[in-house]
C-alpha cells in the first residue's frame, strides 16, 4: 500500500479564535497519519470550536491548519473531498429516508459510492425507505457514520459523535473506527468527554481546557507517565509542589496527580502510587486550573 505523502493528517499551529467571553488561544497539536486522536475536554473547553475551524465551518482569527498535507484555505475543496464530518446531531432533514439521502449525497460528494453506502445500511440494519424521524438516536448516528464512510474519505472528524449512545452501540462504533484505521492513510480525530471510549481506541490524546491545550501526546505514554499518590495529609505536606500537577484533599487524606510516575515512585517510595485513567488526568488538570492555579482543591466526601 502506498504510504501517504504527509506525516500528519492534521497539523494545527497557533490556532486562535476569539469570541465574546471565550478565546481559543494558540492551540497547537498534530494528528499523525494513520492514527486515532482523542480530543478530550469538558463542555465549553473549545473542542467544537477547534473542530469547526478544521472543517471550515468557522474562520480562524490566527494560526495555520494543514489537513492531509494540504493548505486549509488554498486547497479547501480538495480537502473537503477527502474528509468526513460526524456531528452529535443528525444534520439531515427528518423527512428524508436513506434512499433519498443517497441521491442527495451523490451530488454533494464526487467520490460518493452508493454500493458502499448500501452495504453499511445493510450492516447496520437501517431501512432505506423509513423516514429519519422514525429512527432512534442510535440509528441516526449509524446513518451519519454510514454516510461519512461512503465517499472514500481519508480523515474522519467526529464531534461528540458517541455522546448519548448506549454502551452496545458505542462499542459497535469503536470497532468500526478500528476497522477504518486499518487503511494506512486513514486517520480519525474524535472529540469526546467519554474518556473510557478513547482509552479503548485512541492512539493519541489531546486535552483542552478553557481554550488552551493542557497535554498532547501518545495515550499510552501519557497514561504511563501519570499516576496518583494516595496518602495522608501529613504525608502530602512532605511532597514538593514542583513534583505534582494537582492534589485533591478529602476528609480522609490526599490524592496527588504526578506527571512523572517513575520519578515520583523513587522520590516518594513509601507512598502508594497508582496508575491513573484519562478521566482522572482530565479532572485533576481541569480542577487545578480552576482553583487559581493553587494546584490543590478540596472535595467534600
Amino acid at each position: 500500500m502506498e504510504a501517504p505523502a504527509y506525516e500528519n493528517a492534521i497539523e494545527i499551529k497557533d490556532l486562535t479564535k476569539r469570541y465574546d467571553g471565550f478565546t481559543l488561544d494558540h492551540v497547537s497539536f498534530n494528528v499523525p497519519s494513520g492514527s486515532i486522536m482523542g480530543f478530550i475536554g469538558q463542555n465549553g473547553a473549545g473542542k467544537t470550536t477547534t473542530i469547526n475551524s478544521i472543517l471550515g465551518i468557522i474562520k480562524k482569527d490566527e494560526g495555520t491548519i494543514k489537513i492531509l498535507g494540504l493548505d486549509h484555505e488554498k486547497q479547501e475543496t480538495e480537502i473537503k473531498n477527502q474528509i468526513a464530518a460526524v456531528f452529535d446531531e443528525l444534520p439531515f432533514a427528518e423527512d428524508l429516508n436513506a434512499k433519498q439521502l443517497g441521491k442527495i449525497l451523490r451530488g454533494v460528494f464526487p467520490t460518493w459510492d452508493e454500493a458502499i453506502f448500501q452495504s453499511y445500511l445493510d450492516r447496520f440494519q437501517l431501512p432505506s425507505k423509513k423516514k429519519f424521524s422514525q429512527f432512534s438516536k442510535g440509528m441516526k448516528m449509524k446513518l451519519q457514520i454510514a454516510s461519512a464512510l461512503s465517499h472514500h474519505a481519508k480523515l474522519l472528524v467526529m464531534d461528540e459523535a458517541t455522546t448519548g449512545l448506549d454502551p452496545v452501540v458505542r462499542n459497535e462504533f469503536l470497532d468500526l473506527f478500528l476497522e477504518f484505521i486499518q487503511e494506512e492513510n486513514h486517520s480519525i480525530l474524535m472529540s469526546s468527554h467519554i474518556t473510557s471510549d478513547l482509552e479503548k481506541v485512541a492512539d493519541y490524546v489531546t486535552f483542552i481546557d478553557c481554550g488552551q491545550i493542557l497535554i498532547t501526546g501518545m495515550k499510552d505514554e501519557i497514561l504511563d507517565n501519570h499516576g496518583v499518590i494516595k496518602c495522608s495529609k501529613a504525608d502530602f505536606a512532605q511532597i514538593d509542589p514542583k513534583d505534582y500537577v494537582a492534589a485533591r484533599l478529602t476528609d480522609f487524606g490526599a490524592e496527588v496527580m504526578v506527571s512523572d510516575r517513575h520519578l515520583a515512585s523513587k522520590n516518594y517510595s513509601g507512598l502508594v502510587l497508582d496508575k491513573t485513567t484519562l478521566e482522572e488526568i482530565m479532572l485533576f488538570y481541569v480542577s487545578a486550573g480552576r482553583n487559581d492555579h493553587s494546584k490543590t482543591f478540596s472535595t467534600i466526601s
Binding site: G56, I57, K80, N81, F87, E89, L90, P91
Partner: peptide, 13 residues
C-alpha cells in the same frame, strides 16, 4: 438541524 454546518464542511461551496 445542523444541515448548514454539514453543508459548510462538504465539498460544495
Amino acid at each position: 438541524t445542523p444541515w448548514l454546518k454539514y453543508a459548510l464542511s462538504s465539498p460544495r461551496t
